[in-house]
Design a protein around this nucleic acid. Structure first.
Lengths: 127, 127
DNA sequence: TTACATAATGTTATATTATAACAATTTAAT
DNA sequence: ATTAAATTGTTATAATATAACATTATGTAA
């Protein structure tokens, strides 16, 4: 459990409190009062937080959410469900899914060091 | 099998011939001699081609490849392997994988209408 | 074949997302 | 204390993507 730097902590706290994925420039607007003024300061903190697994990037949305999967110290095996109406995103933690994908080998026998899976559909509320 | 419009055909042909995923502005540069001058013309064609399943977007790379999976008329179930060194991308067509993911239900019993999976690792050459 | 709706095009401007380059400061480990 | 590594601050700019509006082409049904 590594300690975060000032900017990293500010930005992680914001993302962690957010009920939905946050975009970089929305993060920027929200932390300007705390002295973080430039996009690069945000992106650097985001890069680091992703690297150490505290947050994940939702690639199809260019947005970031806090990791709520205690077992994933590093973002090497991620799966999300995304509601196409309300854009709610939930991290999926399914042992059988992660086992299946971690062990998946393609035709050439290639094994992978990392994966990211995004499911799309309608959440309970929106159905 | 629907016929493509002029711009769609030009852009599809380019992507289809490319051995690697192409980015939108690289596509733009390559079709300017054919009269496609503006980013929006490219993005509109890309949107349509994705919609009808002729190409796929590699979300983690903001790039596009032609679909080489004859069974996927529409891009509702996609899986790719991505080499982290040479950036080669291959579409995975595994019946067992697609069956597993298509039938996957999360804890709430939510079933999904679509998914996209990206595996990362090293390809044969780069290993 | 005319009318009508739908899809595609062309164009300019602008919004959004992300990184380059350089200097200074802080932190952590010897 | 010294030094390397990480982090910060700052300005500028690159890369990715969409808004808004006018026009033209295509398909379909009376």
């Amino acid at each position: 459990m590594q300690t975060l730097s000032k900017n990293q902590q500010i930005i992680f706290d914001l993302i962690d409190k957010s009920p939905e994925p946050m975009k970089a420039y929305s993060i920027l607007h929200n932390v300007q009062k705390k002295g973080i003024k430039a996009p690069l300061q945000v992106y650097r903190a985001l890069d680091k937080l992703v690297e150490i697994g505290k947050i994940h990037k939702i690639e199809s949305r260019n947005a970031f959410i806090a990791c709520h999967n205690s077992s994933c110290q590093v973002s090497k095996a991620t799966a999300f469900s995304i509601c196409e109406i309300c854009e709610k995103v939930t991290e999926i933690s399914s042992a059988s899914l992660s086992k299946y994908l971690t062990n998946f080998k393609d035709k050439d026998g290639m094994k992978y060091s990392k994966y990211n899976l995004e499911f799309f559909g309608l959440c309970k509320k929106c159905r």
